[in-house]
Computed example of a mutant assay.
Amino acid sequence: MSSSGPSVNSEVNSVSKSRTKISDEAFERVATGLVEALERGTEAWPLPAPPMSDPDFPPIPPTSPHRLFEEGLGILSIDRGMFDRHLNTVVDLIVPHRMNLSDDPFEIHQKWLSRRMGDVADRLLFHIATDWLAQAFDPHAPNTDRWWLSIALLNGLATVPYGQPVHQGYHLVESIALAERPGTWHTQPDAGPQHMDWNAHAVVPRMSSTVVAHERGVDAARWVLERLEDGDLDRRLLLLEWIRLLLERKPLIEPLGLKDLLLRRASDPVGEVANKVTLCLAKAIEAD
Rank of each mutant, 00 (worst) to 15 (best):
193 P>V: 13
207 M>R: 14
230 D>N: 14
172 L>D: 09
177 A>L: 03
144 T>Q: 09
173 V>Y: 06
200 A>G: 10
158 A>F: 02
190 D>R: 15
174 E>K: 13
211 V>W: 01
218 V>G: 05
206 R>I: 01
204 V>A: 11
219 D>N: 08
226 E>Y: 15
190 D>S: 15
182 P>R: 07
206 R>T: 01
196 M>D: 13
227 R>V: 02
233 L>F: 02
153 L>S: 05
167 H>P: 02
128 I>N: 02
196 M>G: 11
126 F>C: 05
154 L>Q: 13
174 E>F: 07
199 N>D: 15
229 E>Y: 11
158 A>G: 05
137 F>W: 00
124 L>C: 08
166 V>E: 05
140 H>L: 10
155 N>Q: 11
231 G>Q: 11
230 D>E: 15
156 G>W: 00
196 M>Y: 14
128 I>R: 08
164 Q>P: 11
149 L>P: 09
147 W>P: 11
219 D>I: 07
199 N>K: 14
152 A>P: 07
165 P>K: 02
140 H>I: 02
144 T>H: 07
122 D>L: 06
200 A>R: 12
148 W>F: 11
192 G>I: 09
172 L>F: 06
175 S>P: 04
200 A>C: 07
168 Q>C: 07
172 L>M: 11
132 W>D: 08
184 T>N: 13
214 H>F: 01
233 L>I: 08
186 H>D: 07
212 V>G: 01
195 H>Q: 10
126 F>W: 14
221 A>M: 04
233 L>C: 01
207 M>N: 08
157 L>V: 00
186 H>W: 06
168 Q>M: 08
202 A>H: 09
203 V>H: 15
204 V>S: 10
131 D>L: 13
154 L>C: 13
211 V>G: 04
236 R>H: 00
228 L>G: 02
162 Y>W: 10
190 D>L: 15
230 D>I: 13
235 R>F: 06
237 L>T: 03
191 A>C: 06
177 A>P: 03
234 D>Q: 10
198 W>D: 04
163 G>A: 08
146 R>V: 07
187 T>A: 14
186 H>K: 08
136 A>G: 05
223 W>N: 04
181 R>P: 03
195 H>G: 11
238 L>Q: 00
232 D>W: 13
191 A>S: 14
140 H>P: 05
136 A>P: 10
157 L>Y: 04
